[in-house]
Design a protein around this nucleic acid. Structure first.
Lengths: 243, 243
DNA sequence: TAGTGGTCTAGACCACGAT
DNA sequence: TCGTGGTCTAGACCACTAA
């Protein structure tokens, strides 16, 4: 743990435990740095962290303040790690399993070539899985991945988590993700697999997921039951007051 | 413009114009700092910016690399400023107007008290507006705001942008926002106001928007036509390889 | 072992807000 | 004018990767 992360942890704790109440200002950087036995530069890096996390904001010339909604952040289950697969998102409290609807190898369509940065003859997996949570259908996943980048996928892997296979077995690092979320009427396949009524809509999430070095490895569409799923995001604004 | 932002701008341009191709590594920090006539610390701050923006990633001991998807970032219209109101999001190319469906003052319900951090007797605005874009209905907005924080709202303001009124007239700074996105069957009011069919779903977006100091000032639900709207987000992963 | 990025320091100067 | 936070510097040391 680096020193500034340590200091940030400390201040975070002080905010949560009420030492610094929302809306009040922190001591000035110079004396805080002295308290933590560090330079002002290091302290500032710690404060920067807390600003991007949404706990603090500062105003040049006036001071550094605790945001009024700092304590409500504690109750939010959102992080940068939102890209993790369904398995990890739901946690160990629930029983999650995947039923493979179909699993094929084929050449990519033009759209798939574009999204996955492939040529016309680089083979992809075309996977359709129904995700069940606590013995109820939850989502229908249409996943496309390049074979070259993610080799040796078989039914055993599909029944577990593909993400864990990529990180642990292949040793690749998952990076950022691009997502598009929309509401759609359910298709016949949705009605059948998700056990819903024709008038129930689905939440369609289109994902393009990249490795840490930026190579795309997954292009997927997930049809989620609208009564069982939603998306939450926290959009953090500017950390400084604009001048 | 601070020096490190300047340098970042420079590097960003070099990536976009192909000087540094995706997947290749940048020169080492020491020589880059020399090229830009600056210290390594300042250069590092510039690189940090580009990392959080998703252009670069670095690996301790190995180098700093351009992400493979760096160039596709150029085509994405997503920024931190996603919280801005509908008016600003659509830009000046489109004709946007609001039709006031109802406008009342009342005491908040328990949920509204919680979301807006109010007591039971602090009056709120209860505003229902239909948003039209290019003479077609686009969304139905149910907005609640505390009168105390955002005073003097009248029909003139409602016809324009509430956000512009808050930032320009009241001089308050808008900060972060919390959003929940889900798919729902359309209500009778949706069908009437949005001119859709009963089987068309709507995308329901629940917003809690905070000022820069963290005080919540808006709790709203927006019912958007599913054929005209979607949500895009870019989830950036770790900027360093984990050790 | 050489070279890379990550962290930390002590001090300087600037921009801004409050007074 | 004073005190605040923001930026910048030059140099030190550490952690890690690759050879």
């Amino acid at each position: 743990m680096s020193k500034y992360a340590d200091i940030a942890q400390n201040i975070r704790h002080e905010i949560k435990s009420g030492v610094y109440a929302p809306g009040t200002s922190l001591p000035d950087q110079k004396s805080m740095a002295a308290n933590f036995h560090t330079s002002r530069m290091t302290l500032q890096k710690a404060l920067d962290l807390l600003k991007t996390e949404g706990y603090l904001y500062s105003q040049q010339g006036a001071g550094t303040f605790v945001k009024y909604n700092a304590d409500s952040l504690v109750n939010m289950d959102i992080g940068v790690d939102q890209y993790v697969g369904t398995t990890e998102l739901l946690g160990p409290k629930h029983k999650v399993d995947s039923r493979i609807v179909s699993f094929n190898l084929r050449y990519p369509t033009e759209i798939e070539q574009e999204k996955l940065a492939l040529s016309a003859t680089q083979v992809i997996y075309d996977i359709v899985r129904a995700r069940w949570v606590d013995d109820e259908p939850y989502a229908l996943e249409y996943t496309k991945m390049p074979v070259e980048l993610i080799p040796n996928i078989d039914e055993t892997v599909l029944k577990q988590s593909i993400y864990q296979y990529i990180e642990n077995t292949l040793g690749l690092q998952i990076g950022s993700a691009f997502r598009r979320i929309e509401a759609r009427r359910s298709t016949l396949e949705d009605i059948k697999q998700l056990n819903i009524l024709p008038e129930d809509p689905v939440l369609v999430v289109t994902n393009i997921v990249y490795l840490a070095d930026g190579r795309p490895f997954e292009y997927s569409k997930t049809h989620q039951r609208s009564d069982k799923s939603h998306f939450s995001i926290f959009v953090s604004g500017r950390t400084h007051e604009p001048h």
